[in-house]
């Protein structure tokens, strides 16, 4: 309590003043928890206001209780103050997960240091309702690609075609998103089986911008990174299906597994091509691009199948075509 407040509280019984102070101590505590200490001043003003109101009463404990009851529970009051000072929570899906110093912008570039959840990753990569193609990166500095916005921009789907992405897609079509990455893995395994023994002992594992290889390694070590990447993709995919995650998460896991597998395949295929005398990276980039396009086509196709299922549900009930 500062001197003015002690003076303001002067006309009160110690019990009444104690009630007021306990109340505001709880408000301050809640503000600390909400990391909204810029509201402290507002709360001090409020306390002065309470003492002012009490000055017009007998200052009994009952008066204090009545006046404090008007303000509501201290935690609710703190939440209200925090809201007014920092503005109401924005309604875009982007910021749904609330404020945190671990996410924001740095020199105009977004950053994100919270551990990514599967939900957040999937929502950023496939968010047709958000018209921004570049979205803040799921983890780290910079931007990610929102493939949902790309599909909308290309007029392949409308933002609200599906109520919840992939939710209405029939199970057998959903399974395609798990089968495709497995098939791609088999293609990689076949490639390795065909060429591994014929490769020279040292192969290229990294290429410069010019296309010339700038790092070599033994052909066994060259396999380590592609194998690990592909296995990570398959592990995420397997866990999404075994744990029966929502369709969006299962499809996103499949898309991620496809991308990781296509990067692995591209790197290995390029190592083979370089060993066979290729002087540029004419294999690496097309294979990676093909993987990205295939993933995109799969996502759009599933979204359209989901839309068709929603339409069937709504339109079949009334009549077939055109008679409405």
């Amino acid at each position: 309590m500062n001197p003015q407040e002690r003076e303001a509280a002067g006309g009160l019984t110690p019990e009444s003043a104690e009630l007021v102070e306990t109340y505001f101590a709880r408000v301050h505590g809640a503000l600390l928890v909400a990391a909204a200490d810029e509201c402290e001043e507002t709360v001090d003003d409020l306390r002065a206001h309470v003492y002012e109101q009490l000055a017009g009463t007998a200052g009994t404990a009952a008066d204090v209780t009545r006046i404090l009851a008007e303000l509501g529970p201290p935690e609710a009051l703190a939440a209200q103050c925090a809201d007014v000072v920092s503005g109401p929570a924005p309604s875009t899906p982007e910021s749904r997960d609330g404020r945190s110093p671990l996410a924001g912008t740095l020199l105009g570039m977004p950053y994100e240091l919270r551990v990514p959840t599967a939900e957040r990753v999937a929502m950023r990569w496939w968010d047709p309702m958000n018209p921004n193609i570049l979205v803040p990166r799921v983890f780290g500095l910079g931007w990610d690609l929102n493939l949902g916005a790309v599909a909308v921009k290309l007029c392949l789907i409308k933002p609200d075609d599906e109520d919840t992405p992939f939710e209405s897609v029939p199970d057998r079509w959903l399974a395609v998103s798990a089968v495709l990455p497995v098939l791609m893995t088999l293609a990689l395994v076949t490639l390795v089986a065909l060429f591994q023994s014929a490769l020279p002992a040292q192969v290229a594992v990294h290429w410069g911008i010019s296309g010339a290889p700038d790092r070599f390694d033994s052909k066994e070590s060259a396999l380590i990174l592609p194998v690990i990447m592909t296995l990570i993709g398959l592990a995420i995919l397997g866990s999404a299906w075994l744990r029966r995650r929502p369709p969006l998460l299962r499809v996103a896991a499949g898309a991620l597994a496809m991308l990781l597998c296509s990067i692995s395949t591209a790197a290995y295929a390029q190592a083979v091509a370089t060993a066979y005398g290729a002087s540029d990276i004419g294999v690496l980039l097309p294979v990676m691009a093909a993987g990205l396009v295939l993933t995109f086509v799969m996502l759009v196709t599933l979204a359209r199948i989901g839309r068709a299922a929603e339409m069937r549900r709504d339109l079949d009930g009334t009549s077939k075509k055109g008679s409405v």
């Binding site: 309604s91 875009t92 309702m129 018209p131 609200d160 549900r313 709504d314 339109l315």
Partner: peptide, 20 residues
């Protein structure tokens, strides 16, 4: 960019519904 996410939220909270 504002309308579609809001439509989705209003629908989830049951204030509006949609039909094809």
């Amino acid at each position: 960019g504002t309308v579609y996410p809001l439509l989705s939220r209003l629908k989830k909270s049951g204030l509006i519904d949609s039909v094809w």
